[in-house]
Amino acid sequence: MEPEVLLQRVGEGDELAWECFVRQHQGRIFGLAYHYLGQAEDARDVAQETFVQIYRNRHRLPEESALRPWMLRIARNLCMDLFRRRKARPPVWDIPVEAICDLPAPEEDPGQLLQDQARRTRLHRALRELTDLNREMILLKDIQGLSLEDIAGLLNIPLGTAKSRSNRARLELAEKVLGQGALP
């Protein structure tokens, strides 16, 4: 089904379309929350709340091109609210590397998963060494695939600042990966 048609049917209240929509986007939303929060339980709660908010606003969903930034913005805001409720912002990526690698990516066959395990481990180890600011840029730009314009709007910073931060973060991550001895 075309994404526009799916969105239209979600807006009309079609429960099957809503279920399909949740299946399509749950991994990405949960992944963002998990990378921010570092705890699977909290990430599940935030992801669930994100979908509840999307459902409440299903009559005014954005267009397909703007849908992903919109959903990720909701999820990120909920993560930030959770941080505020905790009254302290813990390190965004303070997750044991092994715990991250235990979480399988959806729709991936076991052989491919095994092959990518070492690379993922090295990547996560390098990511953990980044500063919070650079890690968030990598998370939003390179992992979640948001455009620089969306990130600038999300973080409320100028476009040029977003671009320079993103480049700096990527270079720092590349050097961390190189510093681990070999390219993954």
């Binding site: 949960f30 599940r44 990516a105 590349a174 990966v177």
Partner: peptide, 27 residues
Amino acid sequence: SALEMLHQALPGLAAVDPGEAFLAGVL
């Protein structure tokens, strides 16, 4: 080379399976 590798590998970390019960909870 490292940047090119990251360019290809990082998008693969975006989606994480939340588990079977997640969808039921949302619905």
